[in-house]
Simulated scan of single mutants.
Amino acid sequence: MRPTILWQGRPSPLMHLGLYLSCVFLLPFPLALWRYLQVRTTRYTLTTERLVCEQGILHRTSDEVELYRIKDYTITASLLNRWLGLSDLILVTSDQTHPTLVLRGIIDAHAVKELIRNQVEALRTQKGVREID
C-alpha cells in the first residue's frame, strides 16, 4: 500500500529577504540567485510513514526519516522570519544518518509540527514502537 501524502511544502524564498536586499546594494547578483535556487529546489514531503527531504540544484539528494524515529520538536524564528510568518522546524530523531533534521522557512510551522506529532503517535501505536533513550 502506497503511503498517503499528508503535507508537502518548500522553504519560503522570503527567509533570505535580507540577503536579496543586500545584493541590490552590496553583494553580487549571482549569490542571491544561487540562494534562491537552493530554496526553490528544496521540497519537504510528509507521508503517513515517513518524512522526505529533497534538495539540490546540480546534485539532487533525497533523505527519508521514518516518522516513528522522531523524538522531539523545536520551532525557531528570527525577528525577520517572525514578521514574515516563517519558522524553522527542528526535529530530533533516533535516525543514524540524520539525528537532527531542520525544515527551514516553513509557513505555519506550529500546524506542521502538530500534523507530524499526531502522525508519529498514530504510527507508534500502530506498530507498537516504544522509544528508549
Rank of each mutant, 00 (worst) to 15 (best):
S78D: 13
R69V: 10
L51V: 07
V24H: 02
L91V: 04
L89P: 02
Y20L: 07
R104Y: 00
D133I: 03
Y73N: 03
L115M: 14
L67H: 11
I75T: 06
D72Y: 14
I107K: 04
T93L: 05
L84P: 12
C23T: 03
P13D: 00
W34H: 10
R104G: 00
G128K: 12
Q8E: 09
T41Y: 13
L17P: 08
L84Q: 14
Q119Y: 06
E64L: 12
L86F: 02
W34Q: 10
L37T: 11
H59F: 14
L80P: 13
T93F: 03
F25R: 09
P11G: 04
L51A: 05
T74A: 11
G85M: 09
F25G: 05
G105M: 02
T45D: 03
V112P: 02
D63S: 05
G85S: 12
L101S: 04
M1H: 08
L26P: 00
T45C: 05
R10I: 00
L17Q: 09
S94H: 04
L51E: 04
G9S: 04
L80H: 11
L89Q: 02
V102A: 01
V112F: 02
L58W: 15
G85Y: 07
E49N: 13
T42N: 04
L33K: 08
Y36A: 12
L31V: 05
T97I: 03
I75Q: 08
A122W: 13
E54R: 08
L21I: 09
F25W: 08
E64A: 14
S94Y: 00
L84W: 09
V39A: 09
L46P: 02
A122V: 14
T100L: 01
D72W: 12
R2M: 12
C53P: 00
L91M: 06
T4V: 05
W83T: 14
L89E: 00
I5G: 02
G128Q: 07
R104A: 00
D133K: 06
R130S: 08
S94G: 07
L115R: 11
K113S: 10
A111Y: 00
